[in-house]
Amino acid sequence: MKPRVGHIRFLNSMPLYEGMRITGLLDLIELVKGTPRELIDMLRRGELEVSPISSVEYCKGGDDLFVIPEVSITAYESVESVVLVSKVPIDELDKSRISLSNASSTSQTLLKVILREYYDIYPEYIEMEPDLQKMLEVSDAALLIGDPALIAFWREDELFKYDLSHEWYRHTGMGMSYAIWVIREAYAECEHDQARWLVDGIKNAMRTGESAIEHTIDVISNNGYPQERLKRYFGKLSFGLSQKDVEGLLIFFKKAFDLGLVEKVPDIRFFGD
């Protein structure tokens, strides 16, 4: 049976997809597409062997997961695809209502950390499907991630827009790793040789996809996305996972823990250690 590998349905996962296609790995796995929230649920049910996950999910149940080294979706000074869209300036959002995209947990937690830690703001939160118009009909601001966030960020209108990577970097000087790749411990132990082959294949595919980023941008722009904006967007992303990226993750986990947003700060266990 082919190993089952999760894949996030956002533009920022296209370099890995193209890398898997170029290296031939795509033909040797069963690719399962979904949002970060959907993929972590499938992983916990044992329906995937390997998957990207919203990084904060590692605080909520990483005891049976190994992190795959050298692979992530990380942004530093800005990202454009994790965005708070607001009717009013951010410092006027205390006791307001904010709609949160239900696609990912990391962005929700990051927003709560930023608002409480750096703005002393305590709004009411509701979770919704990521439809900006409907979100702003019932709220003062909306958190979007992925492709809907890019579209909203690029649109010229009267709304206030806050890039959460910029906010995080401005206050901490650290990047934010929004997604990490993990492998189930039970699978890694029972199918060790295949697991090693799969991990090496994913790492190689990510490197290949990153080196072929111009081709990936051409593919995406054929679907109507402005090429120059795509170049700017992908130029903001890193697809590796450095020691400093891990340090940034642990700072984020610790702040979330101190605010009661997660139950623990986990030890990050890497596959192969």
Score class of each variant (00 low, 15 high):
92 E>D: 06
18 E>Q: 11
252 F>L: 15
259 L>D: 07
271 F>V: 12
179 A>R: 01
22 I>W: 01
227 Q>G: 05
256 A>R: 02
172 T>V: 05
138 V>A: 11
175 G>F: 06
134 K>S: 14
172 T>L: 05
79 V>I: 08
272 G>T: 12
177 S>A: 15
176 M>T: 05
105 S>R: 00
254 K>T: 08
35 T>I: 05
65 L>A: 03
87 K>N: 09
226 P>S: 09
161 K>F: 03
263 E>H: 14
262 V>E: 10
148 P>S: 05
204 N>G: 12
149 A>I: 07
160 F>E: 03
114 I>M: 09
248 G>L: 08
69 P>Y: 05
61 G>L: 07
133 Q>S: 14
202 I>N: 01
203 K>M: 04
27 D>Y: 07
209 G>T: 07
81 S>P: 01
117 E>W: 02
205 A>R: 10
240 G>E: 13
205 A>T: 07
33 K>G: 13
129 E>F: 06
145 I>Y: 04
44 R>G: 07
265 V>N: 14
236 K>I: 03
103 A>V: 14
25 L>Q: 02
115 L>F: 10
174 M>E: 06
31 L>K: 01
131 D>S: 14
156 E>I: 04
135 M>W: 01
10 F>Q: 12
30 E>A: 13
223 N>V: 01
217 I>W: 11
95 K>H: 13
39 L>M: 12
227 Q>M: 04
88 V>A: 09
268 I>D: 11
